[in-house]
Design a protein around this nucleic acid. Structure first.
Lengths: 145, 145
DNA sequence: GCAGAATGGTTTCAATCCGCAACCCATCTG
DNA sequence: CAGATGGGTTGCGGATTGAAACCATTCTGC
């Protein structure tokens, strides 16, 4: 029901990118995960244009990644992640870790993701059922015939 | 040297998205990981417009994610992933797994990522140093002072 | 060794998308 | 009640995209 015309209907990567694969959606999700809830707060953190933010929030809502509701403490609006939205955590995390490894010069500082105790989150490494590390050379796509 | 004006210079997520966060780049990377090497092959698999593909291949090359070289078997050109490009495997994988969980109706078929033995790749789950599962609620961003 | 197809693009043009600025109304705050 | 803040909408110009046509070089079959 959300997006009838997929770029590549049978590829899950392509479908995900059809939903969040633009310049801003994942940054909105990132900020929602870090506590942003109000329209103005998203706008301030990302620097996105206000009309585009309106559009992205509507699309993400239509696709079931966030929901809009009135804040418990009054009449203000707020946007919060759905379960599907929160499940993008691993995506944001791998994007973050790749960036830390490849998008900074040595010595450049960057923000860090830490757990409740302030300890840095360890790198994610894809592993097979037997625990061996997987990469592009040891896997391939099997098309859904 | 690659991208002087970042959307959000100190956030690794934003920097990564500045490099590959458009509609096509990650699909090109996906296909490169699955064996595509030639210009026409990328165009056929993704359905991207040819001038845009030219632009994306140049940008990905400029950012060090792919390299262009002449094929060993003659004079044809080919595009292959660099180490940094191959390191996007975890990103593509988490996008794929999220899509499998949330972008398909129950009963709909989709392509699958399998290892050398044909076994499906297990889901990635972010874990802390002590092995506990991490998510958006148990982590937060620490800004770089 | 020549015709035709494939490869790897470039160019042109129209349509779409995006960012900026201005505007608007409702709600808080002093 | 004046001003600030929240949550937008509208209009406009510039940038990005997509479709199609074009082009030069290289294979391929006969």
């Amino acid at each position: 029901m959300p997006s009838p015309d997929w770029t590549d209907p049978e590829c899950p990567v392509a479908r995900t990118l059809d939903l969040v694969g633009d310049r801003w959606s994942l940054l909105v999700i990132r900020d929602a995960m870090d506590g942003a809830r109000a329209f103005t707060e998203f706008q301030r953190r990302t620097g996105i244009a206000r009309n585009i933010l309106t559009d992205r929030l509507r699309k993400l809502t239509a696709h079931g990644l966030i929901t809009q509701r009135t804040a418990p403490s009054g009449r203000r609006q707020e946007y919060v992640l759905t379960d599907a939205g929160r499940d993008l955590f691993a995506v944001i995390l791998t994007l973050r870790q790749w960036g830390e490894r490849h998008a900074f010069d040595p010595g450049e500082t960057h923000s860090t993701l830490v757990d409740r105790h302030g300890a840095p989150v360890p790198d994610i490494a894809p592993a097979g059922t037997d625990g061996t590390l997987l990469d592009a050379d040891t896997t391939h796509v099997r098309r859904s015939h």
